[in-house]
Structure formats: structure tokens, C-alpha cells
Design a protein around this nucleic acid. Sequence first.
DNA 1: GCCAACTTACTGACTGCACGGTAAGTTCTC
DNA 2: GAGAACTTACCGTGCAGTCAGTAAGTTGGC
Lengths: 230, 230
Amino acid sequence: MREETLRRREEILKAAMATFGSKGYHNGPLAEIAEQVDMTHAGILHHFGSKDHLLLEVLRYRDESDVAGLDGQHIPGGIDMFRHLVRTAFLNAQRAGIVQTYAVLSAESVTDDHPARAFFEGRYRTLRSEAVEAFEALCAERGVAVPASVRHASASILAVMDGLQVQWLLDPTQVDLGEASQFAIEAIVAAVLDPRPSPLGADGTGSVEQQPVAVDGVVPAEAAGQPVGA
Amino acid sequence: MREETLRRREEILKAAMATFGSKGYHNGPLAEIAEQVDMTHAGILHHFGSKDHLLLEVLRYRDESDVAGLDGQHIPGGIDMFRHLVRTAFLNAQRAGIVQTYAVLSAESVTDDHPARAFFEGRYRTLRSEAVEAFEALCAERGVAVPASVRHASASILAVMDGLQVQWLLDPTQVDLGEASQFAIEAIVAAVLDPRPSPLGADGTGSVEQQPVAVDGVVPAEAAGQPVGA
DNA sequence: GCCAACTTACTGACTGCACGGTAAGTTCTC
DNA sequence: GAGAACTTACCGTGCAGTCAGTAAGTTGGC
């Protein structure tokens, strides 16, 4: 019955994804996961030992099936990586469940002692460095020097994809996940390959601006707030 | 004692921000908030009625103090809005607590029946339309037609700020919140004001590409996974 | 200026429930 | 018959919300 067991665990992992996605990890009870696979919550603990461990297996499972989905076993490099990301964004627009799971868990993971924290830390680190490599390959191919901006660009591309997902999940009628992701990724890639002067003028830090608009005028440190976009 | 009461409630709101930020809403107990202001959790319920209500007051409070921090009472328009956003990003790099509160709560809010869902939905809607207006003003000023991309660009700018915050919270040594935000915002604004051909070639949707790299080859619908960046 | 009537700001004790984990027993499979 | 795959029953805890009581104001009448 080993084959059957594996299948059963996979069912549990999928059910867990659904529950963690719709309720978050801390607020997603084992009993709800169990119910989906016609089991008691004790049955799930029999398979996975603890809820924390189940979460980690869920994340590992996702990564595994992602890799299995790739022709080879790795994300394409160079310009194809960015094409791949755009394609993924369009694909994600039809998989709200999975997108929500990742969006919820990745943000939840920044809280104190979250069991998935190390996972997401590592995940972003890996993805960023893969993006950096893709940029480097791309620059080499075009015979241009690798600009310092590639690190910012790499983080930004992942960031914009994640951020758009949150807005899209909140209100799919107002955000086109695929198109917006494509636009932003193209804008960022273009800015790396062929930099132009800043459209904002100066350096934008405001350190020498004469008329600070907000924030700078706020005195009580903690009362400042984050005016926008945070 | 009315004055004193107001002060007390403000203390509670700040304590709640700290707790919700470090533990999330569902996982952040009233007792911990109460402790910070030397009170029992029942005392907090006396002031705010319920935990849900406290959360909404926290969010309202933040927005209020943000507006109070602005010289006038509104976010600047036109190009100044984008300068303002960049400045905010640099400022946020020194306010991890507040950043975390918003990052955690905004993502948590996409879960089922979350009490802050309507708040964030409205918040993003407002911010996006302010960004759209800023772009329109900017285009008018420069005498160029308003491109269709402004909606995508507006969502993307907010998205990249939020997404970078998550990565930065997970590992501040690897991401420079201010610089990366500035780079991405400039790239996106530039792409709106002065569009260039896509560096990715074609339309990027992959619909006509002959060699799909990943995803497309995955058969079991739910097993597909989100290859990257989700 | 004082006292009674009332309100506000709590505390402490309790209720009830949700939930993760454990232990012991049962059934099914190899 | 051994072990895997469970179930049932139970424990302990964490936590939001209720409620009665108390102490410190606040207000109004005289």
C-alpha cells in the first residue's frame, strides 16, 4: 500500500494548500484540511507529525512539482528567464488558489518565529541570484557592461510580481495580473539594458529638496506613519 | 478625564500596531497588546468593543496621522507624487515596525472574511487612481498623449514598493529598500513617458512560441505549481 | 462647597470554544 | 503477526468575549 499512501499524502498536501491559502497558516485549522480528505485531524498528524512540519512539506511539494513541470530541471537563463516570468504571470491569473497560498504565506512568514520564514528567505535569495545571472548573461550577449542596477532590478521584478498578485487577489476587476506584470518586467529589463536619465530629476532621495512634502515635517518619530504605498 | 482617555486609546493603538505587525492579526493576542499599556485585555475591549473593531481603528489611525503629516492634506500630484513615493521608500527603510505591520496585514487581508479586507481593497483602489491622475497630469504637462499603460504602471509602482518591503523584511542585508524602489519607480515612469519596444520581443504571452519552457508541459491542472515568482 | 446621582475606566474571574498534540485501541494490508 | 493507517477519546492551552464589581472622576441641585 505504499503507492496508495503516497497518493493520500499528496491529497493532504493539496488540501493543506487550499486551507493555508484561504485562511493563512495560523488561522487554518488541521481539522479543515482533514475534512477535505475525509479524515480526522489526528490522521494528518499521523502522516506529518506536526502542523509546522506539514507546512514545510507543502512548500517543498510545490517547489518539487514546479521543477517537475519544467522541461529540463531548471529555470531558463538569459532573456528567456524574463519571458518565462511573464508567461508565469499570465498563467497565474488562472490559478488564484495557488497564488493566494503563496501570497499569504510569504507575507505571514515575516512574522516572529514563523515556521516558513527560512523557506521564503532562501527562496527569494535563490530567485534573486538567478535573475542576476540572467541579467549578466543578457548583458554579455549584447556586449554591454553589467550595470550596478541588476541587483535592484532583480529584486524589483520579483517584488512587482508579488505585489501585483496581492492587488489582483483583492480586486481582480481592477488589476490585470498578466498585462501589468508584463509591462513592469519589460520596463525594468529595459532600464537595465539601456539606462536613461531619471525622469524624476535629481536623485529623488529628497535629501536636498527645499520643500519636503510630508513626513520630514513630522516630529514624534513613531507618529510619522507611512504616507503611502507601504 | 476625556483628554487622558484619548491619550490612552492612542497608546493602545500603537501597541496594537506593534503586536499585529510582529505576529499578524489572527495570531496577535489582545493580552499582549494590553500588557504593553499596563492593562488587562478586558480593558482594551472596554475601549474598542471587539478585536475586529480595534484592527479597523488601528488602520484608520495610521491613515489619519499620515494625512496629518502632510503639509497640506493631500499627496502631491504630477511628478511630485512619484518623488514622494521614492522618498517614502527611503524613509520606510528606517521604520521596519510600521512597514511590517502593513506588509503583514495587507497580505493577510486577502484571506476569507478578513476584517481588514475592505480597507485594503479601498486603499489600493484609491492609491492606484491617484497614481493614474499623477500620470495624466504628467503627460499633459509634457504634451504627450496618455498611454494605455498608465493603469498597469500605477498598479505596478505600488506593487513593487510592497513586494520589496517583504523581501527587505525577510533579509535586510540583501535588499536596499530605498535604492531598489527608486530604481523600479524610475524605470516604470520612464516606460510610461517614453515607451520603447519590448526588450523581450514578441508579446511575451508565449501563445505563439514554439518552445514553451515550462508550465505548458504540465498536465495535471492542480499539480502545475507556480514555477517562480509567485 | 458639598453631597447625591451617575458615568467612565477599568479589574478579575469566568465561560466557551477552537485547536494542536497524544495515547490507546481498531482495522486493513502485506 | 507485524506494521501501517487510521479513529476515538481526551488533555491542555490560548484566547475572545461577558459580566459583576470597584474606584475614580463628573455633573447637578441646593
